[in-house]
C-alpha cells in the first residue's frame, strides 16, 4: 500500500492550559476524500489547525507524503502543497475577489486555464470579480475561500465545514466543486457536520471524540450503519 498523503501519529495539541488533542492517529489516503467527523468540540478544527501549523503539536508526528512537517512553520507547510480553508473562511474582506485570488496564487501570475476551471465551479466569482470580498453573500464568500485554495494545484486540501449555514443550492455547488477537486487528483481532509454531504463525498472517514480518533474506516460503512453512527456521534444520522 502506498504512503498516505497525510499521516498523524499520536499528535497532542494544547491550547493554553487545555489539552485539546490527546494522541490523534489519522491517515488521509492519496487522491481520496477523507471525512473528519464528530460532535462539536471534540478537536476536528484543532486537528486541521495543527496540521497547517497554526497550533503547534506538543507531541507526536505529522508527515506529508512522508516528509515530517510537525515543526515546520505555516508558510513552509503551505508551500509544501497544503491548501487550507478555515471554518471562518478567512477571506480578506477589504480586498476584491480578484485580489484575493491573485494573493492565493503564490507561485506567480494566475494560470488562466486554472482560473476558467475555478469559474466553471463557482460562476458567481466571475460576476463579482472586481467587487470587495466583504460585500459577497455568505455562500459566495465560502466559494471564494475554496476557490482560493483551488487556484493552484495542491497535494492536500484541509477544508473545515464548507457547507455550514449555506442554502441547499450552494451546498450542491460546493459538493460539485469538491468532486472536481478530487478528480484533479487532490487528497482532501474534510471536516463536515452535514452527514448527507459527508456520505456523498467521503471515501474514508475518521470519527473523533475527546481529542482522539475513535473510529476509522470506509465512509460507506459508516453511512450504512445507523447503530455505529449513534454510538460514535450520539445521534442517528439516518434521521437527518
Amino acid at each position: 500500500m502506498s504512503e498516505p498523503m497525510l499521516r498523524l501519529e499520536g499528535v497532542f495539541t494544547n491550547i493554553a492550559q487545555y489539552h485539546i488533542l490527546r494522541g490523534v492517529d489519522l491517515e488521509v489516503p492519496r487522491g481520496r476524500v477523507s471525512m473528519l467527523l464528530g460532535r462539536n468540540g471534540v478537536g476536528k478544527t484543532t486537528t486541521l489547525r495543527t496540521v497547517i501549523g497554526h497550533w503547534r503539536a506538543h507531541g507526536g508526528r505529522i508527515t506529508l507524503d512522508g516528509q515530517d512537517i510537525t515543526a515546520m512553520p505555516t508558510p513552509a507547510i503551505a508551500r509544501a502543497g497544503v491548501g487550507f480553508v478555515p471554518e471562518d473562511m478567512g477571506i480578506f474582506a477589504d480586498l476584491t475577489v480578484e485580489e484575493n485570488m491573485v494573493l492565493a496564487a503564490v507561485s506567480g501570475p494566475i494560470d488562466s486555464a486554472r482560473l476558467d476551471w475555478v469559474f466553471s465551479a463557482f460562476p458567481p466569482l466571475k460576476t463579482f470579480w472586481k467587487s470587495a470580498a466583504g460585500n459577497l453573500s455568505g455562500g459566495q464568500k465560502q466559494m471564494l475561500s475554496i476557490a482560493r485554495a483551488m487556484i493552484e494545484k495542491r497535494r492536500l486540501y484541509l477544508i473545515d465545514e464548507p457547507t455550514k449555514g449555506l442554502a441547499p443550492a450552494i451546498v450542491a455547488t460546493m459538493a460539485r466543486a469538491l468532486r472536481e477537486l478530487k478528480a484533479d487528483g487532490a487528497s482532501i481532509l474534510l471536516v463536515e457536520q452535514n452527514f448527507a454531504v459527508a456520505k456523498a463525498l467521503g471515501d474514508t472517514a475518521s470519527v473523533m471524540d475527546d481529542g482522539r480518533v475513535v473510529w476509522s474506516g470506509a465512509m460507506a460503512e459508516l453511512g450504512r450503519d445507523a447503530d455505529l453512527q449513534e454510538r460514535l456521534m450520539g445521534l442517528s444520522m439516518e434521521a437527518r
Binding site: 478567512g90 480578506f92 494573493l103
Partner: peptide, 19 residues
C-alpha cells in the same frame, strides 16, 4: 497586497504560504 491582507488576517496570509 500581502500587507493589506496581513492587516486583516495575518494567520490566513501565512496559510497561503507567505512568510
Amino acid at each position: 497586497l500581502i500587507v493589506r491582507a496581513g492587516v486583516q488576517n495575518g494567520e490566513m496570509v501565512q496559510a497561503l504560504g507567505y512568510r
